[in-house]
Design a protein around this nucleic acid. Structure first.
Length: 580
RNA sequence: GCGCCCGUAGCUCAGGCGGACAGAGCAGCUGCCUUCUAAGCAGCGGGCCGCAGGUUCGAAUCCUGCCGGGCGCGCCA
């Protein structure tokens, strides 16, 4: 890649992914230098060409970029990595914007670039699609999350799954995936029957006043069902009308009403939480469409089933499960796994990647699901599963006791009554999913610097306020050519400016990484770092009242930061306030 | 017993597909508001990365075995 005199296209002047593009460029130069060194006998012949990377040093005092190429080549070249590094550097074309190349440490090659190389980032970062990329390649990814059984209100773990899943979806979309969000509603089968059993008993207790009946073993224990039963009685025409119904019909109708009510409440609370789904897929619908029957027949046809004790089993052990699983009981009913397999098979027909976020209490179920999908001939690598770990709620410095067994838990509704939605979403989206977390209500409610949410939001509000003041003074928006990157009369050479520019430039890479690793919580770390860089800049560099070109350039830089913060917070599902 | 997840600073957590001295916030201590939001900034102190082996030029990161915590191991879902 020889230097050319070609004029740069406007696109390259404001790259969509400045850091990745520079890394690729440096990697190509290193590749070229290695080839030259080999050709000239400056490096011993290699049996293999190992991969190397151009990365960002942990310690930026080493340079802007570094490559481990010499370390990677040490083994195949059977030579000291430092000597290899020297050889590579001898053949390296040091061209702008490379200012300096050095060999350091065990054999890293460090690159320092001229400060101005990042100036175009200001322009790039103010474009609407800043941070977006095409790393997802338009792959269709179907994300299923929350999917709580409609036998009770959503709880705290559901709130975590909702916040994290929603952030993940936003991040995936920004990274160029085609995203669909689904909520699977398990509104049929045994699950529903057991709920109905509880409804039957609660009706007798609460409406008929029977003190002698108790919940059967295995029925849903929660007291909350009483409330649904009472509401259902009202909705179905009152006590008299309901009492007149034959018992089976009465129980069925009360339970059905309660389930629909629970689903509606889940939809409401999630909407309030700013989490939306593209589809609420019901198990009952899948059954009606005959999807479960069809998949059962496909499994039988696959030859991986057998009959034992009158039940039909799937030989999941042939696909890595630790025991075989019953598909159809001797009484002809399906076990829960059949509609679930059917649902996942259906999803795999509709997407490239099916991603499930499951509670940790369901993780043991993944191997049998994969096994079944493998038996159906699907490439199970297309099913990705993220495990959502538990949440311990801390109030007043103590853990709030919850017992699923006794039906005692904090509902999402109650939770949102106690905490700001931005704080809740931030806390959940900022923690890795697969690790048990503590949610400190008191901390989340603090409107002080102890609360990390406000730190980031404050940076955004601060900039908004600054721009407002600038607008009042007629300095904003900046007129074309008045300063900043385009005209470059001012080059952002203050350390705080350069540090800030660098943080902004990282954003597209952070989004891409968060998407590829299915780890949106990385963006919370990033948001904090970006906000910190701005606060430092704000303290060190006066904006309003600076020399006109400097003021203009700093306003543009501030706006680039504001936009990046807003984009980042949006990906996390947290609002970016204009004032605080 | 078997399987999955977790164990990093006083607290809450990043980092974990091997790389240059292990990070952040909070809490503690010291400074900084006559000027754009101090919900801010600058600095200090604080860690056997659960323990022990192994692989590697190099391990918080990979492998094995322990220890501790969570969850699962149904013809419940």
């Amino acid at each position: 890649m020889a230097p050319t005199d070609e004029p740069r296209a406007p696109e390259s002047a404001a790259p969509a992914r400045p850091i990745a593009e520079m890394q690729a460029r440096l990697a190509a130069l290193v590749e070229e230098a290695v080839a030259q060194a080999l050709a000239e006998g400056d490096l011993p012949p290699l049996e293999e060409r190992p991969e190397f990377r151009v990365e960002i040093p942990n310690d930026r005092s080493h340079g802007d970029f570094a490559t481990n190429a010499a370390l990677a080549l040490a083994r195949p070249a059977r030579q000291n990595p430092r000597a290899i590094a020297q050889a590579i550097v001898r053949w390296l074309k040091v061209e702008p914007p490379i200012a300096e190349v050095s060999v350091a440490g065990p054999g890293f090659i460090n690159f320092r670039l001229v400060p101005s190389w990042l100036n175009p980032v200001v322009t790039a970062a103010r474009r609407p699609d800043w941070g977006s990329s095409a790393v997802g390649g338009g792959r269709r990814i179907l994300v299923e999350f929350v999917s709580a059984n409609p036998t009770g209100p959503l709880n705290l773990v559901n709130a975590r799954s909702a916040a994290y899943g929603d952030a993940l979806c936003r991040v995936l979309a920004a990274a160029g995936y085609h995203v669909e969000r689904e909520y699977y509603v398990n509104d049929a089968g045994n699950q529903f029957q057991r709920f109905a059993d509880a409804v039957r008993v609660r009706y007798m207790q609460a409406v008929e006043g029977r003190a002698d009946v108790e919940l059967p073993e295995g029925a849903y224990p929660g007291e909350y069902i009483i409330g649904y039963v009472q509401a259902a009685v009202e909705a179905l025409g009152g006590r008299g009308a309901v009492a007149a119904l034959p018992e089976e019909e009465r129980v069925e109708r009360l339970a059905r009403w309660a389930v629909e009510r629970i689903i509606a409440e889940a939809q409401d609370v999630l909407a309030r939480y700013r989490v939306r789904f593209d589809r609420w897929m019901r198990e009952s619908e899948l059954r009606e469409r005959g999807v479960a029957d069809a998949v059962f027949r496909r499994l039988v046809a696959s030859g991986h089933t057998y009959v034992q004790d009158g039940a039909v089993w799937l030989r999941t052990t042939a696909f890595g499960d630790d025991k075989d699983r019953v598909l159809r009981r001797a009484d002809g009913t399906y076990t829960y796994i059949v509609p679930d397999i059917a649902y996942h098979a259906d999803k795999l027909e509709r997407c490239d990647i099916a991603l499930d976020i499951l509670g940790q209490d369901h993780h043991g179920y993944v191997p049998r699901l994969r096994a079944a999908l493998a038996a159906l001939g699907y490439d199970t690598s297309r099913l990705e599963v993220l495990i959502n770990q538990m949440v311990h709620l801390v109030r007043g410095g103590e853990r709030v006791r919850m017992s699923k067994r006794r039906g005692e838990f904090v509902t999402m509704e109650e939770f949102l009554g106690e905490v700001d939605i931005d704080a809740a979403r931030w806390f959940f989206a900022a923690r890795a999913l697969d690790s048990t977390m503590e949610f400190d209500l008191d901390l989340a409610n603090l409107r002080t610097n102890e609360n990390p949410v406000y730190y980031v939001q404050y940076a955004h509000a601060r900039i908004a306020s600054l721009l407002e003041r600038a607008a009042e003074a007629g300095a904003w928006p900046v007129e074309a050519g008045a300063g900043g990157a385009e005209a470059a009369p001012y080059g952002y050479e203050e350390p705080a400016e350069r540090a800030l520019l660098w943080e902004i430039a990282r954003f597209p890479e952070e989004v891409a990484q968060a998407a590829e690793l299915r780890a949106p919580h990385r963006l919370a770390v990033y948001a904090r770092e970006l906000a910190a860089a701005y606060h430092t800049f704000y303290t060190d560099c006066r904006v309003l009242g600076a020399e006109p070109p400097v003021q203009a350039a700093r306003l543009l830089l501030s706006d680039a930061t504001r936009h990046t913060l807003a984009r980042c917070l949006d990906l996390l599902g947290v609002s970016a306030p204009e004032r605080m």
